[in-house]
Design a protein around this nucleic acid. Structure first.
Lengths: 215, 215
DNA sequence: ATTATTAGATAGTGCTAGTATCCAATGTCA
DNA sequence: TGACATTGGATACTAGCACTATCTAATAAT
């Protein structure tokens, strides 16, 4: 199919597709002449994936490029791609050196993961993001105990077992990587939405005190 | 304290504080003369809250303004503030009219919440975000069953019970609202980080097939 | 009296995610 | 064959966001 058809079928403007081609989110079509290229089903599929990550996952274009590069890199062993993709997804947060509050949060996180026996790379950005969130909560006066964290870890572990377990076992490398990325990103949104819905529901059931306005 | 001192103590540049004042994220100090205002502990506290929402929560300034406006609106009953704050947090997603896939996802979400008996406003943005994620997953070839969704809902419900339950029972209206907002936003990050850590761990344990590169 | 600081207004910056325009080469249809 | 549309490729432009900088007149500190 031609560019205009790819645009029609995907609902993405031609100019945007050109932009994605420039940015390397979409592989070039097969050049059939100097002014014509042919795009296939895999382009349509990739384009839909990109749009899903942009619109639903709210990922920055640069992250998507990194994720897809890892997916497309055939030298990368499959079992490492999820990690690489996951790392490309979340921005790395830098530690703010010599801050005792940061160090405490970080060592709590490390102790927890160590205690649980989780195999997580030392450089995983999620470690830093977690430590940052814990530190900030504590700074703002909301104590966070190891037990609090442990219960989140256990919930997440249960979810991960089913999510990773339900991946297709043998679908070709690219399809598997795409499946991992899509699910990781979109189920993040599902989990987040449910968190908010559950909080609203829970707060509707809670007997709130009738505080006088100026209290 | 003066503006420069507020800046020093919070680590936020003067120009940025002025920007927050302009944007209404921070109430003006008490004008003590034409060129001097006095800021108090509550300004420092609010400023730290704003920075936490910006840096850790990654919320856009416009959302923070809406959240804080709801928090500061003394006419708003306390039991509605969480809802209002939650709504201000997530961008509303518009339904793409007359799309059967959208309608199916939406009705699944409604059926699920109805079946669970959750009290969630019909206009809650999390409904739309959830429906969008479900629709997109299905479009990309990842079937999502009601049972899948139900298990997410149950996890989220457990979490919400403890999170909402652990709020201080009587701390003054503003402090309670701030507690609700801070926890909602920062525990989102905690939950997300644990999701990613758990996925990496789980994938490290999974026996991945050795697919030939070109498969 | 000199220097520094402030409120308030306005303007400028860097980044992101597209959009738009232009060109020459090439298709397509009458 | 000629008029017209489409394409790839390059370049330029735009809107929105979150600051950041500059300027002015008034005031405070020394």
């Amino acid at each position: 199919m031609r560019l205009s058809e790819l645009s029609e079928r995907s609902g993405v403007p031609v100019a945007t597709i050109k932009y994605y081609l420039r940015e390397g989110l979409l592989p070039p079509g097969e050049a059939v002449s100097a002014t014509r290229s042919e795009y296939g089903q895999e382009h349509l599929r990739r384009l839909r994936l990109v749009r899903a990550l942009v619109e639903v996952g709210q990922l920055p274009i640069a992250s998507i490029r990194r994720v897809l590069a890892a997916a497309d890199d055939e030298h990368e062993p499959l079992h490492l791609v999820l990690g690489t993709a996951l790392y490309a997804l979340s921005p790395r947060v830098e530690p703010a050196a010599d801050d005792p509050e940061w160090e405490r949060a970080e060592s709590d996180v490390n102790a927890l993961l160590g205690g649980l026996g989780w195999r997580v790379d030392r450089t995983a950005p999620a470690r830093g993001r977690l430590a940052q969130a814990v530190m900030t909560l504590r700074r703002l006066g909301h104590p966070v105990s190891m037990d609090d964290l442990r219960s989140y870890a256990e919930s997440a572990a249960r979810r991960a077992t089913t999510e990773i377990g339900s991946l297709p076992a043998d679908a070709g490398r690219l399809a598997m990587v795409e499946a991992v990325v899509v699910r990781s990103v979109l189920y993040d949104q599902v989990a987040l939405a449910f968190r908010h819905l559950a909080q609203e529901n829970e707060s509707a059931h809670r007997p709130w005190p009738h505080l006088p306005p100026g209290s």
